[in-house]
């Protein structure tokens, strides 16, 4: 089984209200000195067979078409 991880993050220039909410909550819990939090998504994808350049390319295609919106998000694919 080939396992891949896809990390999707809001682009740096796009406002991340969820990250801002977490950033606001941390000092209330006593975590001092946190200056920034960005929240993204992690996908774990399993594909039949061994990891190959073809299956990697396929996961990149999935990330491009469905898992991320390239207008507002960046993604990274790696083998797990």
């Amino acid at each position: 089984m080939a396992r891949y991880v896809v990390d999707v993050m809001p682009k740096p220039e796009i406002l991340d209200p969820q990250g801002k909410a977490v950033l606001g909550a941390l000092p209330r819990l006593g975590f001092a000195g946190v200056v920034e939090v960005r929240q993204g998504k992690r996908f774990e994808v399993e594909i039949e067979g061994d990891a190959t350049p073809e299956s990697l390319a396929e996961v990149e295609q999935m990330a491009q078409t469905l898992l991320s919106n390239p207008v507002i998000e960046d993604f990274e694919v790696r083998t797990a």
Partner: peptide, 11 residues
């Protein structure tokens, strides 16, 4: 259509 819609800035 171009662009995207994200969570309201005031959450």
């Amino acid at each position: 259509l171009p662009g995207a819609l994200i969570r309201n800035d005031h959450r």
